[in-house]
């Protein structure tokens, strides 16, 4: 097991925690998910193709573990932790009350999305992956990524107090 692999893995942890937080809705579950993903990545290091993108590989592991965990605890649903609802950074990211409310609404709106839409929206809008990269991470056709993204935004925007989309 190479030290560089481990260092690269640690370097990805902040982004993996962000992705996991967007999936789980609370930091404790997100950290459990990331920790499990790191363990799994180390165990399956041989499956990682040198030269390919490690972040995409890790996003996929996190997402797969999340689905697995979600199946096991299907009744639990996504819990938005009040401590995490825009406040987990001590408010540094949003000093104005209206900004903090917007962040809390964004977290709640994400949690309310169906899991598949939430995952796609997180990878595109938060992690900054292209549609093609998202399709590769999730092993989905490009069209499926786009349709899930569209449906996610259609549900999300009104909850953020925004338009539902232009009239066609």
């Amino acid at each position: 097991m190479s030290d560089q692999f481990k260092k690269d893995l640690v370097g990805l942890v902040p982004r993996l925690r962000r992705f996991a937080l967007s999936l789980t809705g609370n930091q404790a579950d997100a950290d459990d998910l990331v920790q499990s993903a790191c363990v799994k990545a180390l165990k399956h290091e041989a499956q990682f193709r040198p030269g390919s993108r490690m972040d995409s590989w890790m996003y996929r592991i996190v997402q797969t573990l999340w689905i697995d965990d979600h199946r096991r605890a299907k009744s639990r649903g996504t819990q938005v932790d009040a401590e995490d609802a825009g406040l987990s950074d001590g408010g540094r990211a949003a000093r104005l009350p209206e900004d903090r409310m917007m962040l809390a609404r964004a977290q709640e709106a994400m949690a309310a999305l169906p899991e598949k839409q939430r995952t796609v929206l997180s990878l595109v809008a938060i992690e900054g992956l292209s549609y093609k990269e998202t399709a590769q991470v999730l092993n989905l056709p490009l069209g499926t990524v786009m349709s899930r993204l569209s449906r996610a935004r259609e549900a999300l925007l009104p909850q953020l107090g925004m338009t539902k989309g232009p009239m066609q």
Partner: peptide
């Protein structure tokens, strides 16, 4: 609106980027 939503989402989940890697995760890695 889309840009604002993207920005809101990015900020809403940005806390882990400003935090050190938790010890349990570092140890596991």
């Amino acid at each position: 609106d889309l840009m604002a939503a993207n920005e809101a989402l990015a900020q809403a989940f940005s806390a882990p980027l400003q935090e050190p890697v938790p010890d349990p995760i570092r140890e596991a890695s």
